[in-house]
Design a protein around this nucleic acid. Sequence first.
DNA 1: TCGATTACCGAATACCGATCGGGATTGACA
DNA 2: TGTCAATCCCGATCGGTATTCGGTAATCGA
Lengths: 217, 217
Amino acid sequence: MAQVKKPEVEQAILRSAFELFSRQGYAATTLPQIAKGAGMSPANIYIYFRSKLAVLYAIYDPWLRGRIARLEERIGAIDEPRERLRTLLTALWRELPRERNGFANNVMQAVSTATPEEGYNPGLLAWVEERVAAMVRDAVPPARRRMLGDARFSHVLMMAFDGFVINHHLQPGAPCSAATIDLVCDLILGAPARPAARAAARKTRARRARRLTGSGQ
Amino acid sequence: MAQVKKPEVEQAILRSAFELFSRQGYAATTLPQIAKGAGMSPANIYIYFRSKLAVLYAIYDPWLRGRIARLEERIGAIDEPRERLRTLLTALWRELPRERNGFANNVMQAVSTATPEEGYNPGLLAWVEERVAAMVRDAVPPARRRMLGDARFSHVLMMAFDGFVINHHLQPGAPCSAATIDLVCDLILGAPARPAARAAARKTRARRARRLTGSGQ
DNA sequence: TCGATTACCGAATACCGATCGGGATTGACA
DNA sequence: TGTCAATCCCGATCGGTATTCGGTAATCGA
């Protein structure tokens, strides 16, 4: 054996690329820029990654998994089922698409242009859909679990996630509204809560959030 | 005045581009290819269109409007509300994403990489959402019209459309299933039809379709 | 210390969308 | 019908991209 790939070099590449992708987007970020930020030559990046696309995947996969894991924690601490649902949908359709200056849209750029032979790996999507399905299961009344708790429904939720990600990129000022999320909550829960009850629940939630963290967002 | 732009030249460009985009995708199609297919030089395309992206929009806009108009006709001829809904969702989430070898995905490629200053025009999306909202209005019981008949809900439907378009590009063999569409129909109609009733309705529909056109698809 | 393996770099490759200047063609007008 | 100006059209080129290649030097096992 001779020289060996250094993990800190790989991390430097990922850190630089993450920063640039977040600020400028995937297509507008050049490999020389990434290399400069990581303190090396563009050619050297190809020692560590097969392509520019591979760099993006290496960032997105753990990033998304971390976001979902954090979401599970947040939801696990909520008692009221309707509030769980609200939190889940708000995270998927409103918060995640906006995070890191619309970072998720970079993946939309990448996968929509990916050719079949580049071998798209549906593993990440499947993993996320399973976790989302589990969260839905824990947020709907028992009578609805068989209907909504499998991967079919969470698949629809994730397809809409894709759309909201792109929509944020096109119209950053028009995120998914709270009214839209409430509407879908009503659909999912079957018997819509009366407006008065819903408003009261929202106040309760706000009070609890203030007490726990002192911060919204 | 002197020479004037010839409509047949513009049509030749659009025809050539439509053919190539459908077969190879937007990103994989080069301007010289489009020009060759249209029998002219690459530079000449810029006489008729501001950019490669403008060519795509000029194809997609009338194409999508035509598809939606056709869908309205189809749905207008259906009596049963549930069957209207099924037809609508099937068209949006299953048929449209597959048409023309996933042509709609080219627009995903384009808009996800479009920069803000390229001036994305939300007019087409707004138009489609309005038409979809109208179709939903006519397919749900009167008690649900206020809840589902506005642009909020059709916006969610279109966001999911985006997702299914990309998903078809990544996994052409895994389109939106009929079971998924039935599930969402159940959610929308509130009181889910009993499985037996649903199966009976589907038979009725099949019989009527055979009688009217002799063709499914 | 030696030798082979390989991370790393500068320069080059291949290709893209878009542009520029000149020549060919057209249509309105006299 | 002849003229002229407007402009369609093309060849060549530009600026920029991801990726690769040949050589160099750092590293690790022996």
